[in-house]
Design a protein around this nucleic acid. Structure first.
Lengths: 246, 246
DNA sequence: TCTAAGCGACGAACGGCGTTCGTGTCCAGT
DNA sequence: ACTGGACACGAACGCCGTTCGTCGCTTAGA
């Protein structure tokens, strides 16, 4: 079935040479269409019509490939320069953008969840800008940095959770959402009066309601940040040692 | 080196028979001492002086074992009955307890991050109680359920992030925290003026500062929840259709 | 007390993963 | 035209989760 190579249909390397760029792009294509579980070295190599070993000339290991993928995804989320008058809108926008690009590649958030610090140029840049926006809103550097850490942590976790709905895990047979959901419902029904709230609200949790849930979270975050900023304004000398704004 | 079995030193099955209980306990011991990466079927079986195949008589697969481990860990986090007067303290306590028990078994949070819904009796019970506490604070069922979802999501993600510090990932050579941190620092220094905030605050992020960061997050959550409750009180007919409290 | 049945336990093996090694192949510079 | 060196790659290694067929013990009934 394999067309034999000859001088006439060569196209071995000169045409499509391997590169970091092509490997990352191909991996992202597979991720978007087949899910994170399908992204492995053999599968990526196969899509590039080569062997798995060839990838290691351009990527040191799979973890590095994953982080390169993540950075390219984050590249698609723009972060504005801080505007003190619109800081709450800006921080909401940034969070929303991050979730948007990450859910477009379901499972990519897991990569970031498995690193301690921001990784890659785009991640670093976004974090820096977010701190700047929060400082523009009246938070101290310390507060801004810690709040940014918290916001990004939530954003990642939310994007990761979202991706559970699009590509279910294959590990368990009952990971088809409806099936396991049914099991849990039956369990809760077995204890009458024990789970009134959950039985009442379980239909609120699905892929469709995700935007609504995220909106509530952002709303709460903004309220919390505003609270911090207001408290700083009350006694600025106490909480804002590094605060330079007027 | 192996002492041969005879009638005199038998202790084959009658003494230490396998059971779900023993398997989960052993797995948790390995988790606590060697990290999540070390918990695999062969290792657990070895600790029980048996073969990996024997475990499958008591747990259907590794995912189920992981979820059983998670449930036993969550069992250690008490959840109080709702007291309307202390609802903010109560919700803070619950979050803190959850993080405490999860960080005692580093990496267990990942299991929960990989499931869509709460899993296991204790997880369900804790979620139910949290909703109840928030309702006691003046939130609608819908708000309480969604806020609980958000709070638990953050708690899990935080616990997972914490566990990164205790057992570093082995995948990358530079996952020794100090080493990678140094690389990132050098990268940021290569762009003077681009990362003023992060260079200033990077030493704020370590395992030691984790409690402080978590406290700030909880503080913000409480502020956000209070804001929601206050807004409901302003126009209760609008946002609290299912609100039954006075 | 003997025996047969049934079930828990388990060694061995399968397929899939990330990764490495040694060999093969092509291209650029002389 | 030749050759050195970088790139590419098939094959293999070790580890993982999981399954299969068998073996040996325990126990209920005669």
């Amino acid at each position: 079935m394999e067309t034999p190579r000859s001088a006439w249909n060569r196209e071995p390397r000169a045409v499509k040479r391997l590169s970091r760029e092509r490997i990352v792009n191909t991996a992202l294509e597979i991720l978007a269409t087949e899910g994170m579980e399908a992204v492995n070295m053999r599968r990526v190599a196969q899509a590039l019509e080569t062997g798995a070993a060839s990838l290691y000339a351009h990527v040191s290991n799979k973890t590095e490939l994953s982080e390169l993928m993540l950075d390219r995804v984050l590249e698609m989320a723009p972060v504005p320069d801080p505007d003190p008058k619109r800081w709450t809108e800006q921080i909401s926008e940034v969070l929303r953008n991050q979730v948007r690009v990450m859910t477009a590649y379901p499972g990519i958030a897991r990569v970031r969840c498995q690193t301690i610090t921001p990784v890659g140029p785009n991640d670093l840049l976004q974090t820096e800008r977010m701190i700047a926006i929060l400082r523009a809103g009246g938070l101290s550097v310390r507060q801004a940095a810690q709040a940014t850490d918290m916001l990004c942590l939530y954003t990642r976790a939310f994007a990761y959770a979202m991706s559970m709905w699009t590509f279910g895990t294959i590990d368990r047979d009952d990971h088809v959402p409806s099936q396991r959901e049914q099991q849990i419902r039956e369990y809760m029904n077995a204890f009458p009066g024990e789970f009134p709230n959950m039985l009442q609200t379980s239909e609120l949790f699905s892929a469709e309601t995700a935007p609504e849930r995220f909106d509530l979270a952002v709303e709460m975050f903004v309220a919390g940040l505003t609270y911090l900023a207001a408290r700083n304004a009350d006694r600025p000398a106490n909480n804002c040692p590094t605060q330079t704004r007027r």
